[in-house]
């Protein structure tokens, strides 16, 4: 059920742009989702199918590109990607600093969509 609010927000942005562009049917939606997101692709598609029934976005396919988690080192400012699933403490590859701030990895961006 936790996919619902996020999918609802995606759908409302899609419908807003569909209306503004006099779209008959939305075919494909290209999304960029940060690797921090706990939502799984197949569930996102299923919830989308459910919520979009009866509208111009019914049947649209979600193409989800996972965006890397990027940290910026607090001491030297270097930006680097990390793997959050391996559970090891990330160190800055440039200065070995251990304090960093999240730059990206938690976004949900609708990049563009293919429509009829």
């Amino acid at each position: 059920m936790h996919e619902l609010p996020v999918i609802n927000s995606i759908l409302s942005v899609v419908l807003k742009h569909a209306e503004a562009n006099q779209v008959q049917k939305v075919v494909t939606i290209y999304l960029q989702v940060g690797a921090m997101s706990d939502l799984e692709d197949t569930w996102m598609q299923q919830y989308f199918d459910h919520l979009s029934k009866g509208g111009v976005a019914e049947g649209a396919k979600l193409v989800i590109e996972r965006m890397p988690v990027v940290m910026r080192c607090n001491s030297c400012g270097h930006s680097f990607e990390i793997n959050i699933k391996d559970g090891t403490k990330p160190v800055c590859p440039s200065c070995s600093g251990e304090k960093h701030s999240l730059v990206s990895g938690r976004e949900y961006i609708i990049k563009n969509m293919e429509v009829l």
């Binding site: 996020v6 927000s9 942005v13 899609v14 949900y108 961006i109 969509m113 293919e114 429509v115 009829l116």
Partner: peptide, 19 residues
């Protein structure tokens, strides 16, 4: 009604309004 596929640029963060 045309059946050619068009590409619409959206570039919108869906959480932007709430943020």
């Amino acid at each position: 009604m045309s059946d050619t596929v068009r590409l619409i640029e959206v570039k919108e963060d869906i959480l932007a309004d709430n943020n």
